[in-house]
């Protein structure tokens, strides 16, 4: 068949395509991760990898398992809904091994002001003060017990041991 003979070079070109395509399929077979497509168009194993990240905030339930006495002070006060690490910072390391890492006691003059400094931008009902006028520079804990800050709840400088307080 002369047509096929004279078009022979075209088949050679097409053959290159087929070869390249087969090569592509072979490489693809080995390169695509095994878990790809298990749930959808992605690598299913990545879900487990992301879930395996280290936790840094222990969560208040964990804190309360040891510091039950603080929970008791806190639970009836205005800070009942404020979680431990909102003020004390991320403490998973401490929860993991209390001896390995001792949290520093927050400076109430700084930490309280973060939320309670008066600003027109804050919701009206939220308790807020101008720190300079309100306390003339004294740390807040002079009058307020941070775990139960209402004035009727705690005597000034209450000798309650603050949770995680080292000093």
């Amino acid at each position: 068949m002369s047509v096929f003979k004279d078009a022979g070079h075209l088949f050679r070109f097409a053959g290159l395509f087929v070869l390249a395509f087969i090569l592509f399929l072979v490489i693809r077979h080995f390169v695509v991760p095994k878990s790809f497509g298990q749930y959808g168009h992605y690598r299913a194993a990545s879900i487990g990898e992301i879930a395996a990240h280290q936790v840094k905030y222990a969560g208040h339930e964990t804190c309360e398992t040891c510091h039950a006495e603080v929970f008791d002070v806190k639970k009836d006060g205005k800070h009942a809904h404020v979680n431990c690490e909102a003020c004390h910072g991320a403490l998973a390391k401490h929860a993991d091994d209390p001896g390995a890492m001792t949290p520093t006691k927050p400076d109430t003059a700084v930490i309280c002001a973060r939320c309670h400094t008066a600003s027109a931008a804050k919701p009206k009902g939220f308790p807020q003060v101008v720190p300079a006028d309100h306390s003339t520079g004294l740390p807040c804990e002079t009058c307020h017990q941070p775990h139960n800050p209402g004035m009727d709840a705690a005597a000034p400088k209450a000798p309650v041991k603050a949770a995680g307080g080292a000093k």
Binding site: G59, H79, H81, V82, A86, C87
Partner: peptide, 14 residues
């Protein structure tokens, strides 16, 4: 996935 809430929720005081 471990029963904790997110870090932002944990730290939100309000």
């Amino acid at each position: 996935t471990k029963g904790l809430t997110t870090a932002c929720c944990e730290a939100c005081p309000t």
